[in-house]
Amino acid sequence: MSLATLLVLADGRLPSGGHAHSGGLEPQVSAGRVRELDSVAEFLRGKLATTGLVAAAFAAAACARPGNGAEFDQGIDVRTPSPALRKASRAQGRALLRAARAMWTLPSAGREPHQPVALGIVASAAGLGALEAAVAAAHGTVSGAASAAVRLLGLDPYAVHGLLARLAPDCDRIAAAAAKTAGAPVDDLPAAGAPLLDIGAELHATWEVRLFAS
């Protein structure tokens, strides 16, 4: 395992489509639930414990068993009731594969797998292990939305990165829990849901004017 390889994969500047997604933040900003740093922190904490855990678990499982991508892909489908979120996840999975194909030799992974599945398969191809895949997924869950918070709310970027630093131990914990289930049957993988993310994503998809794809 190469730590530098993990940094390359988890780098926010990796051209894998993430910049156009707010991780569900834009609809909650519009609903008035997220206005300042504290509510961003609560948003990130809840997202990490729910969809972040699911993403980390599926990234870890797909990294451990990259040949079972289709099964994991279906596992995320049944955990993602919002069609808008399924679409956003698949778009980001496709974009990640596009970037990763230029970086490592990838096995066939389908055209548009869910992002965590793509991440696990890419991590495996990069020689990383399930825990590293899970860390990258957990970190990506919060860092993308945090970056969107800076852009949408004009927050102090230092303060937002302070938040991310304080969430890092939580990301590690989530990733460790996720890595433990890497060998479990798909139905037994975590399925923690976040109802407001689902509802917000559906509403967001109907807006005529929006800044982020999701």
Partner: peptide, 8 residues
Amino acid sequence: DDISANLD
């Protein structure tokens, strides 16, 4: 910098 959505 990240042309993926446009390429898609």
